[in-house]
Design a protein around this nucleic acid. Structure first.
Lengths: 142, 142
DNA sequence: ACGAATTGGTCAAGCGGCTTGACCATAACT
DNA sequence: AGTTATGGTCAAGCCGCTTGACCAATTCGT
């Protein structure tokens, strides 16, 4: 199996497992793409335009996505402290809980790999991936 | 950076680079999802239902996707040699050329990683990924 | 300081990929 | 042979995303 195919297969399965894990922990009505939005919102919140840039979609699409997660109680829009035009989208407590659930699910998947690789190889795998990973935003590509 | 994040970042960039490379080689009007279909059709062709199973979509969606790549000259429908109900979808010469272009683009991306990792680490990376890769079909998940 | 250009955001309409539901033709089971 | 299962298409509708237009607040240029 080619390196690129193996990588895509592993990534696809990881995405699926994270999604399943999030659902299993009681957070429904979310699609994998939302996870990338949560990851951007998690630290300190973000504006719609910023989110759009990171997701690689138009700001209208990002705004629509924000509507959805706001309606479902995962985030809320606040006035931006420094720019009256902008609105700062921040996670609610439920949004944080969902983010933690995703991290747990990801950790579970990684742990399963650890069983096949062992601790030392896991470290080298992380180290190698980190060295070839791009700096930019993580987009739900393909 | 977490292992899962690094993996998704690398996979996302790889997908993007393959797509860009395919476009740069003159094959337009295709989306990354088509690549997964091509990969399934490449060896000996496949039926619409089989394709649907591998892509994780309904057979109607798969049939529609086949319509599209047939219309664009990448594949054609033939009567199935063993089942009069079924139709065997096979790549045209242009479809094969596109598949080769995707493989070249993937090889280019992998080569770029080689510059950062060195040959030995590349081998261990491949070997480790292969050990944790799922056996099933490679789906365009997320 | 003032008007022009830029930027953040939303509203509206439309496209395209995918889904569910119904249906036909062939194959497989009993 | 008759029933059930399978491969495929047609039709309608949903939903995420795009383009286009527009408003409000900020920043730039002179």
């Amino acid at each position: 199996m080619a390196l690129s195919a193996a990588l895509l297969a592993v990534a696809g399965e990881l995405t699926q497992r994270i999604h399943d894990g999030v659902v299993a922990r009681g957070f429904e009505g979310l699609r994998p793409a939302h996870g990338f939005a949560f990851a951007r919102l998690a630290p300190d919140g973000a504006t719609v335009t910023d989110l759009a840039g990171h997701l690689g979609v138009t700001k209208q699409a990002a705004s629509q996505l924000v509507d959805e997660i706001v309606r479902k109680g995962y985030a809320e829009r606040r006035p931006h402290p420094e720019d009256a035009r902008a609105r700062l989208v921040v996670l609610t407590e439920r949004g944080w809980a969902c983010t933690r659930a995703a991290e747990e699910a990801a950790a579970d998947a990684v742990r399963a790999w650890g069983d096949a690789l062992g601790e030392g190889e896991m470290r080298t795998l992380l180290e190698q991936l980190a060295r070839i990973a791009p700096n930019g935003p993580i987009r739900p590509a393909w």
